[in-house]
Design a protein around this nucleic acid. Structure first.
Length: 366
DNA sequence: TATGCGTGGGC
DNA sequence: TGCCCAAGCAT
């Protein structure tokens, strides 16, 4: 990976300068004021594919609501998902809840303290396991995330594709041979450097504490590294959303427990079959015997990681007198806990993804 | 190995 | 607008 003649010096710069820099430059983050494995676990799960600034308010709220693994265990999955509302990648919340119950049932409520045990828990993979083990338990393992891949690729002037599993393995194995005693600070330092200095665009090399060893800085290739294959862009889907209103209350359904936004609440939504087909009306007629004509109240676009929804939002007024004469408006395949009416004041009780919560402002047109 | 899985921010 | 990216994991 590196010219062996230089390697000793280059490794020393990394081992010595990085922790020194981290000690004085690290951000004052709430989860850095504790060694509590539970708190560190929560912060690391939240940090997956999420910028630190985004998760901080969630972290405070979550720790206040669920201060330890037992309180998390006692909560319902709905409560945990609600606490995760707005953060995205909601399977993280479900895995967190599952893992908490495993920790109580299989580990006497104590967080497993080794990498090997940690990665057996749902939602904890190689990165998160390494982060918890090294930061909370000082185990000599590395924690290789996107920051680390970028920092090390540049430091070694490597053009290997960081999306390739082989590259990650190679970097992991190299790091394992150079981990210093204070492994937690070293791992966090690499990530902090990646987040604050060795950024993807316009890295602040003049402020970098390991610049003298950085082969990419020396070669002037920091703009070319890391190499990463382009993601294929999202598919755009035209969707129809139905907002059913009855006496000011809105109709919601719970989404299936697998797939996009699983377990979250939702307005009824369908993929538009064809132009002006009003597929949503057909779907709603399965649940409501008398709907009336839909009113187009607006459009909205929502970008997910792998799909884009272009939504046409239709309002349906449910006449109370009609509903009373059709008490069985809910179909049998929609059990009561899978659908509900909520007033605007009550909507907050449901875990509603942003794709739908942002539609609430369209109600002014309805 | 490749894909599904959210959301917000930067430019 | 679009495009990239972010302290990844499960399958």
């Amino acid at each position: 990976m590196l010219d062996t003649k230089k390697e000793y010096l280059i490794i020393k710069i990394l081992q010595v300068n990085l922790p020194l820099w981290f000690k004085q430059a690290k951000r004052d983050l709430p989860f850095r004021q504790t060694k509590d494995p539970y708190s560190i676990w929560i912060s690391e799960i939240m940090a997956q594919q999420t910028q630190i600034d985004t998760l901080i308010p969630y972290y405070y709220r979550f720790i206040k609501q669920f201060p330890n693994v037992f309180s998390l265990t006692l909560a319902s999955e709905d409560e945990v998902i609600k606490a995760w509302e707005g953060l995205g990648y909601y399977s993280r919340a479900r895995n967190l809840h599952q893992a908490a119950r495993l920790i109580v049932s299989d580990y006497n409520g104590l967080m497993p303290d080794t990498f090997t045990e940690l990665i057996k828990l749902p939602g904890i993979g190689p990165y998160t396991g390494g982060a918890i083990a090294s930061i909370a338990f000082n185990e000599k393992v590395c924690a290789v995330d996107g920051n680390v891949l970028r920092v090390i690729s540049r430091y070694c002037n490597s053009y290997d594709d960081i999306g390739d599993a082989k590259t990650k393995k190679r970097i992991t194995q190299w790091l394992e041979t150079i981990l210093p005693q204070a492994v937690g600070d070293f791992n966090e330092g690499l990530m902090e450097l990646g987040a604050m200095i060795c950024t993807p665009q316009n890295p602040k090399c003049l402020l970098c504490p390991i610049r003298d060893g950085c082969q990419s800085f020396i070669a002037g290739t920091t703009a070319l590294i890391p190499v990463k294959k382009k993601k294929q862009k999202q598919v755009t889907k035209k969707m129809e959303v139905g907002i059913v209103k009855q006496n000011g209350a809105l109709f919601f359904i719970r989404r299936p427990d697998a797939g996009l936004l699983s377990g979250m609440w939702s307005f009824p939504i369908t993929e538009a079959a064809a132009k002006n087909s009003q597929a949503i009306k057909k779907k709603l007629e399965e649940s409501f015997s008398q709907l009336g004509e839909p009113v187009l109240i607006g459009t909205s676009r929502h970008v997910f990681s792998h799909v884009i929804w272009e939504m046409s939002v239709y309002g349906f007024n449910l006449d109370l007198s009609v509903c009373e004469t059709n008490a069985g408006y809910l179909t049998a395949n929609q059990p009561p806990d899978q659908s509900t009416f909520k007033s605007l004041a009550q909507v907050d009780e449901l875990a509603l993804p942003v794709a739908f919560s942002k539609l609430l402002k369209l109600l002014d047109n309805f």
